[in-house]
Amino acid sequence: MNRILLAEDEEVLRMLIVDIFEDEDFTIDVAADGGEAMEFLKNNKYDLVILDYMMPVYTGLEIVEKIRCAETNEHTKILMLSAKSQEYEQKKIFETGADYFMAKPFSPMKLLALVEDILDGNN
C-alpha cells in the first residue's frame, strides 16, 4: 500500500485533502507545519510527500532539500503546493528536487487525480 505524507499548515485544507483521499487505497500521515513534517520524515519512508510551500518552522523548499539529501529517499515523489506560481518560483522548486507542482488555489478533484496518477506511475 502506498504511503503519503501531507504537510499543510492551513487546517481547513488539511481536512479537505484528508477527506478526499479517504476512500483511496493509501495511508496518509498529516503534518501541520514544517517541523512536524521533518519528524515524520525522520522515522518513515514515503511514496509521495505533498508539501505546502509557505509553512512555519521549515518551508516546503527546505523540506525538499532535506528529503533529497538522504539517498534512501530516492524513490520518494514530491508534490509541491504553492501560491507562488510564477515561472522562476516553479523553476526553483523543481531545481531543488520536487517532482510535481500544483498552483494554489487548487481544485480538490484535480489534486486527487494528480495524486492517483503519480502513484499509478509508481507501481
Binding site: D9, E10, V12, L13, M54, A83, K104, P105, P108
Partner: peptide, 14 residues
C-alpha cells in the same frame, strides 16, 4: 500577512 495568505490559498480551493 500569513493569515491573509493562508485565507487566499484556501478560499480559492473552496
Amino acid at each position: 500577512y500569513r493569515f491573509l495568505h493562508s485565507i487566499k490559498g484556501t478560499s480559492g480551493t473552496l
